[in-house]
């Protein structure tokens, strides 16, 4: 569907050059929700703008299906852009136009007759749940409603792709959930591919099928969201995941003297990541029964990604060193990823 082929984008401002995107290649498949996640300044927004060429890449090619967008002239490119909707962090609705007129904006140019447009617009507003607001101005709407209007506007020309640039970052958690739910529904109903740019881990977890992690202009890891969370292969991915979840704050306590003072000498803290069926607590009680090894749980967290549980535990194992070793081996045998933290 969308293929980015060795995309590089460099900004030059006087003597300063900024490498916003460095040699990124990825593919967004038909009908999937693809996430691009990373800290601010990682180059995500530049990368998504390279998809519809709001930013022309310094090097590399962009393909939509079999069309090489980077080879098109401006007029042809504008035509292609009509088939790619885009929504933004700050909605970017035209303040002097009503909700109806905003959604009409891209439609008007298609030459569709007026009554047909009206029908289409009301249909779109119905779909995003705002049919009663068609005559309101953007300033009269809440953030969530504005983003719904923006979504209706982006969908008005029946695009095959919807690009979302930090679309939920200016919204409160509850509204974010509603917008994500809407995006997911639209993805299922219209079979539209969605590219989601975000720094919010929860967004990727909630709706993405696959995701890429970006850091300093590079894609450090790309794959199914579950694998990304369960088994990050790249150091920087892991770092990002830690920073963006509770594990981060737990790991920070290691550096605070005295915070883990009740640790017994000679014992260790183990970090366990278990996926699918095995559950942490049953495991802990079993190693006590089998090896008489006591587990003191210092941190625990279970995520549900696409309905599959992903558990993380940090435990302090206490017992006879030989028994602890056997216990750890037993845990590993259950398919749990095990790592000694301290």
């Amino acid at each position: 569907m969308i293929r980015l082929d060795h995309i590089t984008k460099t900004f030059t401002d006087g003597r300063r050059t900024v490498h916003a995107v460095k040699d990124v290649s990825l593919e967004v498949r038909d009908g999937e929700i693809f996430g691009i996640i990373g800290f601010s300044g990682a180059g995500k927004s530049t990368l998504v703008r390279c998809i519809n060429l709001l930013e022309r890449p310094t090097a590399g090619k962009v393909f939509l299906d079999d069309t090489e967008l980077t080879a098109l002239d401006d007029a042809a490119l504008r035509k292609v852009r009509q088939g790619m909707g885009m929504i933004f962090q700050h909605f970017n609705l035209m303040p002097s136009r009503t909700v109806f007129e905003n959604v009409d904006l891209p439609l008007k140019r298609t030459g569709m007759p007026k009554d047909q447009r009206r029908e289409k617009i009301m249909e779109l507003l119905e779909m995003v749940g705002l049919s009663d607001k068609s005559q309101a101005y953007p300033s009269e709407l809440s953030g969530g409603q504005k983003q719904r209007v923006a979504i209706a506007r982006a969908l008005s020309c029946d695009p095959k792709v919807l690009l979302c640039d930090e679309a939920t970052s200016a919204l409160d958690p509850q509204t974010t959930q509603q917008i994500l739910k809407l995006l997911k529904e639209l993805n299922a109903k219209l079979k539209i591919s969605i590219v989601v740019i975000t720094h919010q881990m929860s967004v990727v977890k909630a709706i993405c099928d696959r995701a890429a992690v970006m850091e300093q202009g590079r894609v450090t890891e790309c794959g199914s969201v579950y694998d990304l969370f369960a088994d990050p292969r790249d150091e920087s991915t892991r770092h990002f995941l830690e920073m963006a979840s509770n594990v981060g704050s737990f790991l920070e306590t290691f550096d605070v003297p005295g915070s883990l003072a009740d640790l017994h000498d000679g014992t260790h803290i183990w970090f366990l990541v278990y996926t699918g069926e095995s559950t942490g607590e049953a495991l802990m009680s079993r190693i006590y029964q089998l090896f008489k090894v006591e587990a003191n749980i210092l941190y625990g967290d279970i995520d549900y990604i696409k309905g599959r549980p992903l558990g993380k535990l940090a435990v302090n194992l206490r017992g006879d060193p030989a028994d602890v070793e056997k216990a750890v081996q037993y845990i590993k045998d259950q398919g749990v990823k095990t790592e000694m933290l301290k």
């Binding site: 519809n52 504008r78 852009r81 009509q82 790619m84 700050h90 970017n92 035209m94 303040p95 140019r109």
Partner: peptide, 26 residues
């Protein structure tokens, strides 16, 4: 707001259309 211009570009507006329906109209 430069975002309005960007939104119009993303919708495939030509520079002429951006001048009249975004810059001047808004």
């Amino acid at each position: 707001d430069p975002g309005l211009v960007e939104a119009a570009q993303a919708m495939g507006f030509s520079p002429r259309e951006i001048v009249f329906s975004v810059y001047l109209k808004e």
